[in-house]
Design a protein around this nucleic acid. Structure first.
Length: 422
RNA sequence: GGAGAGGUGUCCGAGCUGGCUGAAGGAGCGCGCCUGCUAAGCGUGUGUGGGGGUUAAACUUCACCGAGGGUUCGAAUCCCUCCCUCUCCGCCA
């Protein structure tokens, strides 16, 4: 959420942002509502002040035995006027707030303007692996090794759901554990495990609502949403709180299932594990002092990259253009991992700085060293999503006979001898 | 799901027979003093958000005691609805 005062004073900036992000917030409506609201507010405040003053005199009149009836009559009148005005004020405030929630965050200056084609490749890490044979894709590999069951998931859920079987399930679990352990031990994150069913307020806090309601799974009976990412639960963990300066930064890593309806993207990348309604992800979230968020962003990109490097996967870092930025993001870098079987780079991590956009919505503040209460900056990034990691992994580590290898860092997580001791 | 208790400021905690309570008291934090460090002590200050106003301040005003309604000239205090927390019972992983 942007501050109304800021919007009022920087209308071009706002309308540019709305345009660049293809949002449908209406700036004119906002400015108009804002003005009416302030006018009404002023009127209300003045009448209310009058009312407060007069009301204070009632007990004095009574005490000194004077007639309070005339004043009471006047106050009765005032009360009625106030009722009218305040109901108008409520209506207009509600309208304004609804509209404000639709205003996207403003992209930073260094974000390229334009659509997907304007995304900038910042760097590559490693190289595409060369094979002496034609590499198979993960679907074929999974079939050969019985890692996934694409046929039966349709029976119990529908299309867009994955079943990991046997070694596949073990490998996925190994990935999750490896990522969590790595971020905790090497990057200093605290692990946290939170509800994946959250309320409307939380979903609004991080900016999924109101815009993306159709893309979220809603449990109507309780008005709960299934989180599309752990970002929602983690970031809102401090909703409506004022932290001490010393509490910052907070760095969380959280594993969770993620749920996305993917409304409107039917038929796109539907093969295999590429695009699912439910998948697992290890997410990094940071709450930091405003002065630190850009350093934090760089660090988080590195944190996510470290996982890919440790797994020996080739990837590239991409700076997203304005049109590709999410609603709440000020700047986002994607990590795209190379999947040699499919022959594509797959978006595997999205790392964003939201500056104070989410913290305003979720009302997460801190007391700075100057004793002023300010909004924290929030950031998050996948570290990483498992399905596409899984894809890249088995496609990269496949052998000519259709079997696959496992990078060393994962071996301790899936070494069968470890289980014999149990 | 049933019965009870409760939700107050950064935190703890009074007030809840309606007006003098933005809210006692304490902790924390800020500043000053004192003790040659540390601890203790003394004094003093310390909410958030909005409007008006100012170059900026000063100043002024409104709102906020879980959320939303209601009663009243006036509500943290009375009434209603909802949400959340805790205890007990029931039910179930």
């Amino acid at each position: 959420m942007l501050e109304i005062k800021f919007i009022r004073e920087n209308p071009e900036l706002i309308s540019n942002a709305i345009q660049q992000k293809n949002e449908k917030a209406c700036l004119d409506t906002i400015l108009q509502l804002d003005e009416s609201k302030r006018k009404l507010q002023f009127e209300y405040d003045n009448l209310r002040a009058e009312q407060n003053r007069c009301s204070k005199e009632i007990p004095i009149l009574k005490k000194t035995g004077q007639n309070e009836k005339p004043l009471l009559a006047k106050l009765g009148n005032l009360a009625e006027q106030l009722k009218d005005i305040s109901s108008n004020l409520n209506t207009i405030t509600k309208k304004l707030d609804d509209e404000l929630l639709k205003v996207p965050n403003i992209p930073l200056d260094i974000v390229p303007v334009g659509g997907e084609s304007e995304n900038q490749i910042i760097r590559y890490s490693g190289e595409k692996k060369e094979f002496s044979f034609t590499p198979r894709d993960h679907i074929e590999l999974a079939e050969l090794n019985e890692l996934l069951d694409f046929k039966r998931s349709g029976k119990i859920s529908g299309s867009g759901f994955a079943i990991y079987t046997g070694q596949g399930a073990l490998l996925e679990r190994a990935l999750i554990n490896f990522m969590l352990d790595y971020h905790i031990a090497r990057h200093g994150y605290e692990e946290i495990s939170l509800p994946i069913l959250v309320n409307r307020k939380a979903m609004t806090g991080t900016g999924q609502l109101p815009k993306l309601e159709d893309d979220m799974y809603l449990v109507e009976q309780d008005d709960f949403f299934l989180v599309p990412t752990a970002e929602v639960s983690v970031t809102n963990y401090f909703m409506d709180e004022i932290l001490n300066n010393g509490d910052l930064p907070r760095k969380f890593v959280s594993y969770s299932p993620c749920f996305r309806r993917e409304a409107g993207s039917y038929g796109k990348d539907t093969r295999g594990l590429q695009r699912l309604h439910q998948f697992n992800k290890v997410e990094m979230v940071r709450l930091v002092h405003p002065d630190q968020s850009f350093i934090a962003l760089e660090q988080m990109i590195n944190d996510a990259e470290d996982i890919l490097q440790a797994l020996g996967l080739h990837y590239r870092v991409v700076r997203l253009a304005t049109g590709d930025l999410s609603f709440a993001s000020a700047i986002t870098y994607d990590l795209e991992v190379w999947a040699p079987g499919i022959g594509k780079y797959l978006e595997i991590s999205s790392i964003s700085n939201f500056v104070d956009f989410q913290s305003r919505r979720a009302n997460i503040r801190f007391r700075d060293s100057d004793d002023k209460v300010k909004y924290v900056h929030t950031l998050n990034g996948s570290g990483l999503a498992t399905p596409r990691t899984f894809i890249a992994l088995i496609e990269t580590y496949q052998r000519s006979d259709g079997s696959y290898d496992i990078p060393d860092v994962l071996k301790r997580y899936i070494d069968a001898t470890k289980y014999q001791k149990l």
